[in-house]
Amino acid sequence: MRKLIFNYVQTHKSEILNEWIGQMKQDADERAVYTMSAQMFKKTSSEFIELLISNFTETEQEFQSKLTGFAEKIVRLGWPLTVVTLGLRTFGQIVTEGMQEKEVVAQHNFIEFSVEFERWMFPLYNTIIDSYANTWERTVSLQKIALQELSAPLIPVFDKISVMPLVGTIDTERAKLIMENLLEGVVSHRSEVVLIDITGVPVVDTMVAHHIIQAADAVRLVGAKCMIVGIRPEIAQTIVTLGIDLNQVITTSTLKKGIEEALEMTERKIIEVEGE
């Protein structure tokens, strides 16, 4: 039976290809078909069909690696997953209909045909979806790492004064990272005052406040002072409404004021140089 299907596909390759391209252009999402040049689309499509056929001629292993390679390639080309599965489905339909028309498949062997056909198509679906999922997972984890790198930098702005600007939502995992970076930075830069700038933190709830207070406490333990700067009016409102006690920590509204205060704490100040 497998041989029968293969022979059919092999002999009617170009017909199937043309029909497939026609149908895909009709059905598929515009962005898949038209983001590519027609030539490119045709080339990729024929490669796709070629690959489906090679399933018969090559060993399982070779086919697997070829399929994975192709799947990765179309992922890179940016074909949406829906288009690819639609493509597989269309291909299946064309072959089935074609074989019925040519009366290769008839009533008596239809069940055998469909079982065999199913057995042939299923690994294709599986591998393609698998490689899409892998690519997505890889992207997500890469982005996570990138986000982590950007997450909590400690910048030494003057001798003994460092600033940690926080941007974005703070969750428990990030809070831990913040705390570690903050303490390591304080010790390695020998800072006496650290300013945590929360201008870019959209929401300060009890959890975020708790993490910030913990960080401030830990900074005090390693022997530096911690200031929280960039408290916007709405954040001040939430903090008081939620009944969060920030009395232990020095707070200011802007980073500028905070720096001035930090300089004062370390017995320095910025003076203007008189003009000539």
Binding site: E180, L183, V186, V187, R190, D217, A218, L221, A224
Partner: peptide, 27 residues
């Protein structure tokens, strides 16, 4: 108290030991 390492500070805070009125210094 001086020279508390970051890891120790984190442990203390997590244990809820805040050593509130203690003076601290880097070294």
């Amino acid at each position: 108290i001086t020279g508390i390492q970051p890891a120790v500070a984190i442990t203390l805070i997590e244990l809820g030991i805040r050593l509130e009125d203690v003076l601290t210094a880097l070294d």
